[in-house]
């Protein structure tokens, strides 16, 4: 820790009684604050939202808009880590993050998060439109304040409601392209929103000790693992049919529909195994498998949407409509 100038002591500082704490953080610590793995999923789902949008903006502007959505997501991750360093230090999964490690001070993380948030919203507004910028600002606020500071520590429905933030990137991307909203981005939102609970509850099942130690009221901690397994089945029953909505709403084709049904079957089997296997190593293995499977599942669905739209495979409804029109 390096100290410069005389000022108020800063949390995360160490020795001198007065002085601004400047950490010895490396650039990689700042990158870790942005949650790069989460960011990659955000970029990918936003990209799909962009590609599916019927109108197109200049390629340079589209690339910048996508980067701003990614940076906005990263900024909300930094603000999340700034607020959660106390519980992150208690959980094995998160204790290696820059703040609990002492690599970055709280003030640095907060400043970094706020500046990137403001910058990404401003640039997205300039580069695309202010609807997209407002949606990005709302997403950051929802994740960093509503989810992180309120829901996460108060209710077992934290990730159900908080999942809305993670589901927003394709909506923001669509708005950036069109300046408007319509059914397809809402359905993409719905798919990610309904995907979130089974995904996180699978993780919470085998990390429940971690969450209990940190006092986070995740469902397995509050309601027990059996109830969590039941809820995984219930939410999967909403999620899996929702993955077929792009076909029924006419913006995905038979390729997507066919493979989505097979993937739904795989996901259903994974969820059922979690429900049935309740004891010992096999139970934990089933939960780990569902967690990994859920990531792959969502990724493949969006790959399919992307491939169909890039390759121009006709959506199901278009040829049907043509045939009916004679």
């Amino acid at each position: 820790m390096t100290y410069i100038a005389d000022s108020d002591a800063v949390p995360g500082g160490g020795s001198p009684a007065a002085g601004i704490a400047v950490s010895d953080a490396m650039v990689s610590d700042y990158i870790a604050l942005l949650k790069p793995r989460v960011m990659s999923l955000v970029v990918f789902t936003a990209l799909v939202g962009m590609v599916m949008a019927p109108t197109h903006i200049h390629a340079a502007l589209a690339v910048i808009a996508l980067a701003m959505i990614a940076i906005g997501a990263g900024a909300s991750g930094a603000l999340n880590m700034w607020f959660e360093s106390d519980i992150d230090a208690l959980m094995t999964r998160t204790r290696g993050r820059p703040l609990p490690r002492g690599a970055i001070t709280h003030d640095e993380a907060l400043t970094f998060g706020i500046m990137l948030s403001a910058g990404s919203v401003l640039v997205l507004g300039l580069v695309a439109n202010w609807l997209a910028a407002a949606l990005l600002a709302f997403t950051i606020f929802f994740y960093a304040v509503v989810y992180t500071q309120w829901l996460k520590r108060t209710t077992p429905l934290n990730i159900v409601i908080g999942g809305a933030a993670g589901a927003m990137p394709p909506v923001v991307a669509w708005a950036a392209m069109t300046g408007d909203l319509s059914l397809p981005p809402v359905i993409l939102f719905l798919i990610i929103f309904l995907w979130t609970p089974p995904h996180f509850w699978a993780l919470a099942l085998y990390k429940s000790d971690d969450y209990a130690r940190a006092g986070v009221p995740m469902l397995p901690v509050v309601a027990g693992s059996d109830e969590t397994r039941r809820q995984i089945i219930v939410y999967s029953a909403f999620y899996l049919p929702a993955t077929l909505l792009p076909v029924t709403c006419g913006f995905a084709g038979l390729l997507y529909g066919g493979i989505a049904m097979l993937l739904a079957l795989c996901f259903g089997v994974g969820a059922w195994r979690v429900y049935r296997l309740r004891q010992g190593g096999k139970a934990e293995q089933a939960a780990r498998q569902l967690f990994a499977l859920s990531i792959l599942h969502l990724f493949l669905l969006f790959v399919l949407l992307l491939v169909e739209h890039i390759s121009g495979v006709s959506p199901l409804m278009a040829p049907l409509a043509g045939w009916m029109a004679g």
């Binding site: 390096t2 010895d24 953080a25 490396m26 650039v27």
Partner: peptide, 8 residues
């Protein structure tokens, strides 16, 4: 420390 400051 100086190296990391330069990097930042």
């Amino acid at each position: 420390s100086a190296r990391r400051l330069r990097q930042r």
